[in-house]
Design a protein around this nucleic acid. Sequence first.
RNA 1: GCCCGGGUGGCGAAACUGGUAGACGCAACGGACUUAAAAUCCGUUGGCUGGCAACGGCCGUGCCGGUUCGAGUCCGGCCCCGGGCACCA
Length: 874
Amino acid sequence: MPESDQNEMMEFDPKRIVHTAQISWDSAGVSAAAVPASFPKYYCLCMLPYPSGRLHMGHVRNYTIGDVITRYQRMNGREVLQPMGWDAFGLPAENAAIRNGMPPARWTYDNIDYMRKQLKSLGFAIDWSREIATCDPKYYRWNQWLFLRMLEKGIAYQKTGTVNWDPVDQTVLANEQVIDGRGWRTGALVEKREIPMYYLGITKYADRLLQALDELPGWPERVKIMQANWIGKSEGVEIHFPYDQRSIGKAGVLKVFTTRADTLLGATYVAVAAEHPLAEAATANHPELAAFIEECKQGGVTEAELATQEKKGMATGQFVRHPLTDELLPVWVANYVLMSYGEGAVMAVPAHDQRDFEFARKHGLPLKVVVKPRDGDAPVVTTMSTALTEHGIIVNSGGYDGMTTEEAIDAIANDLNKRAMGEKRTVFRLRDWGISRQRYWGCPIPIIHCPKCGDVPVPDKDLPVVLPEDLAPDGSGNPLAKCDSFVNCVCPKCGGSAKRETDTMDTFVDSSWYYMRYACADNDQAMVDERVNHWLPVDQYIGGIEHAILHLLYSRFWTRVMYDMGLVKFEEPFTRLLTQGMVLNHIYFRKGSAGGIAYYSPDDVTPLQDEQGHITGATLKADGKAVEYGGMGTMSKSKANGVDPQALVDKYGADTVRLFMMFAVPPEQTLEWSEAGVEGAHRFLKRLWKAASDHVNGGSVPRLETASLSDEQRELRRQIHATIAKVGDDIGRRYTFNTAVAAIMELLNALTRSDDRSPQGRAVMQEAFEAISLLLTPMAPHTCEVLWQRLGREGSVVTAAWPQPDPSALVRDSIEIVIQVNGKLRGRVAVPAQADRKSIEQAALAEPNVQRFVEGKTVRKVIVVPGKLVNLVI
RNA sequence: GCCCGGGUGGCGAAACUGGUAGACGCAACGGACUUAAAAUCCGUUGGCUGGCAACGGCCGUGCCGGUUCGAGUCCGGCCCCGGGCACCA
């Protein structure tokens, strides 16, 4: 070995190792992206980052998991694609622009450049030739193109939708910008506004999206449950309540949807949403009601806000008729009825629905019991403290009495059907996807508004509609709408002057198909080409659990739309899904006098703790004044609690940071950020380096002769191969990278304990260090690359074959059996590996400590679990 | 409020199919090396407790209850924390 190499072997110098390894990969052309196409393909994809400025620990975690899987699959003989791109449109760029007057484009591209450099410094095997940014017209023109195709097919359409309106800034607010019902900058009470928007008809795909969940064995069960609940398929009955013409003033029917048609005879009133046409109609000569509906229009639009607000309601003075009894039922407006679900109206059955029960008690509305428990009596109205919501037997319902609730639903639906008063229906909780955003930094919606021709789609030949990149938003309104050169245009139909649509698309549109574009990022003639069917579906998708519903559901929908158009040959985009847990950090903030909120980095505050060590608040280091504690939350730009990994990479090197992230916690689990432990990962790499150096410096190594090994050498070799088996299983099947690292650490501990310098001892040692170099490559590729070379192996470790355990090395002569007495551990015995039940039982009874407990008692039962334990029941 | 997760030593965690609770690592403490410190190496480390010692015992996986020879793991009820709730991405 040349002397310079000897020197390199002496000191563990991460910077030098990274340099050596990356040069070696570049010169040999062995980045994991460039591999023989004769191998079976494997597409490993991480969710693309939002270029917020700098990487945070959540990114490092995500991309290290992806890189571990990528490198493992590469070593197992796959042609692996691991691309990277930027989810580059979005609100934070506009916020940064408002803060420092910089155009969002400039801010975004600067961030991308910095973060790309960071990713490269971490040594991820990314194919950078396929990089995309969603704010690039070459990318988003295909958003626009497919949107136009959806418009042609009727999948995209226009209707009104509700937005948060800041009356002071005269601007639409994102939900994130509404804090306690007020605008984030102005503190003004937010109002709801109805404006025209474009929607994508995802509800047409609801059944397909739901059913196909059963055919995704590679997805976590919890994600599939969340998606199924989100789609929320309910089978029920649509019931028509004819208007009472005297009180409503016209003929018509109020449609409601219910899953409990069996309780129809227990309905004592109906309730409609504040936005319901019937409610609007009643306000004419009812100023109090008009005021109440106005009040309902204040506050945010989120479901959480609607569901937690105080239940309020008011009678409209209108009545409808019961479809079976013809009885008059009052119409109420209630803020707990959602316009967006079913028909925006419900029949209220206070005796059998908890929300109706509480509402009825509060407003003095009558209760009528129509269901009794299967094995009990019907409850007495005056003594009821909660609604009886369980299914049971129908009572007080004329001809339906005695039926089970299930039978009654069918019977009532039938009778309603005969009278044309209703029918069975399936409804979904899922709503169509509103994609219009009244925001600048997004993909323009390719529509032209012509005073003569109406809304005209931009012809394909005029795509892309390019977003001007030099505008700087100031917080009020949409700067696009103020940009005459963008807005003013010519109608493609009549040639007259017209105006462009200034709404842009939801950024979820960008991320709904980017994973296809990587397959053919260089094609400027088509959205996708044949290569998309080679690489996709994605074999392994990795990203945060926070995307379990929206992004993943939109992507599944988008893929089906493209499938139906014949653009791709697959319906599901992601075969396997790994949802990584969040990386959390403390959140500190101050509320401004105007209602705004400012967040502070945990680095910039001094926390205050109570006796139990719980954080109760903090002071800002800069001014010494108090800030509030907001608990733990996911690392994000907007909460100012991200931790930049750069300082750690600079101090310890990329491999230590990668290894630590993998060792700290299994990938699906939430991680509360702490730097403690980084030191341990670093120490491990140093110890490995030192031990391998000592071994290499010991001179030449003879051939391993397994037949001539001593017992100690055989035991060490058994551990080497047990580790190979475990690490392969942990990375390849279980995705528990933390236990894989732990097993390698245990093997190194065993190696450093051994002082066997005999020729065959050194041969076993060589086998061990080679195994560790291979097993650790996915987590710490730079260190392993240089180790591999120093161990005298040819070629690059990243293209070496993944090791396989030698079954003959794993054989054990004797095993330890645990002995319990009444389920409590009382002793252990070593028995031959192939010992039968009888002899194990006898060995157990002979154990001295066990005898103390058994002595003088009768053994009633003996449970023998072969290879594991014996339990004596006395 | 609704849906989905999670809760195990001082800390991050392990225990994969109901079978030895705490592997591996951090921190702490003790020791070796050193003029000294850092680094490194060796040892101890869930709590209580018996024994000179060898070696034992009792308790212990958020809380209450259940199933089982045996429960961190399964069932019922609760508490707390995190994620999502359709315009943060």
